[in-house]
Write a protein that binds this DNA or RNA. Structure first.
Lengths: 214, 214
DNA sequence: TAGATTGTTAATCGATTAACAATC
DNA sequence: TAGATTGTTAATCGATTAACAATC
């Protein structure tokens, strides 16, 4: 792995796509794949793929391509998926339940180890094999179950409070689904997943094509 | 609106954030806001905001700032939210149900008008006031209810098939949650919402900080 | 008017694309 | 060896940041 080279956010965001597509290719029985072929499968130029991978090392064989199994391992390790992070979902409403049941997280190596909610009607229920705990027990449970990542799926008004609680309980990263900006200390990683962006950008483009001949 | 100027994807993706934050500010009773203040609230530089808005016109008053209500209207119109697009969700599993119940879409002006599923156990159920229909009735329902946008929340293996069906039924845009690349004709807009990207990028950064002193 | 803040141009920075030498 | 394909450098393109004149 090369030090002192800064990897672009765009590159990091493409790695999961490479990872996923390589695994699909592997299931199809493909052992070796070229950047050309891989690019076609996921809609990225071969140059882009080679450049992205090259920032982490030399994973291919010139004149041959990439060994699929090997590359999956390499990308998995780059992404840190081999750490099998423990995750907790906070807010077991519609979205929180859906996330708790999302099988693709498991297949990426994440372990769902805790669920939290504030509502007495929800506390005690079992979702995807995990019992929903009161949000008041967060501190002890985060410590006891060694939770690395907290997923926020509560209404916007509560999101900052939940984030503060997760941070003081000791998580290292937060994945925020609440549609609001959340502030955390610098050492905590935060990723905002804003579902309204995708739909709004669709709306933008659709309304353009409506009056294309202006 | 300025013609022949290409607006960057990054700009379009920030507009929904501006929109949302402006509405929150409005609720707090703020009538006029500067790019400085707005920037602080959503974690974007004031220059960035002014530049983004400037690509669509002159919405502010020099020496004063932006009139919140006016700007909300302007951005809403730029995003095409005033068209009140009709949307349908395909695949009423955990994620599909959550999306069907997502109140933020409604607050952006989208109308949920149809739900589809292939499973007899789900067909006929009511989710958020809408009855789940068989996927076999998609063509007629898309036409009759004038559906503009289809949301794909089915397992990856079925996603391309569902997309083909949505396109031939006549939707103009697709919002895809299935973790797979989908191919559609050029005239159809497609946005991929890949939930594994966010979590994987968290994992990447967390594993970096683990061996920060390498 | 003086102070504040926009809109816009120029400078910088970063990411993608193109080209090709290295080599399997 | 000849053909294929990577890894890497250079060229281009696009987006952000800085600076400031315009003006409310």
């Amino acid at each position: 792995m090369k030090d002192h080279i800064v990897i672009s956010k765009a590159t990091i965001d493409r790695l999961p796509l490479y990872f996923r597509t390589l695994r699909l290719s592997q299931e199809e029985g493909i052992d070796i794949i070229s950047s050309e072929e891989l690019g076609q499968r996921l809609g990225v130029t071969p140059e882009q793929i080679r450049k992205d991978l090259a920032s982490f090392g030399q994973f291919g064989k010139k004149g041959v391509g990439y060994y699929v199994r090997e590359l999956i391992g390499n990308i998995g390790e780059i992404l840190g998926l081999h750490y099998h992070w423990n995750i907790a979902v906070v807010g077991i409403g519609h979205l929180g339940s859906a996330l708790s049941n999302y099988q693709n997280f498991t297949s990426l190596g994440f372990n769902l180890v805790a669920l939290f909610d504030a509502s007495p009607e929800v506390i005690g229920k079992t979702v995807n094999g995990v019992v929903v705990e009161s949000i008041d027990r967060m501190t002890e449970i985060v410590r006891d179950r060694n939770i690395h990542i907290g997923i926020i799926a509560v209404p916007a008004v509560y999101a900052q409070g939940v984030a503060d609680k997760l941070v003081s309980a000791g998580v290292a990263g937060i994945w925020n689904f609440a549609p609001i900006k959340i502030t955390v200390p610098d050492k905590i990683r935060i990723v905002n997943e804003d579902l309204s962006v995708g739909l709004s950008s669709l709306s933008y483009h659709l309304s353009r094509s409506l009056h294309e001949n202006d």
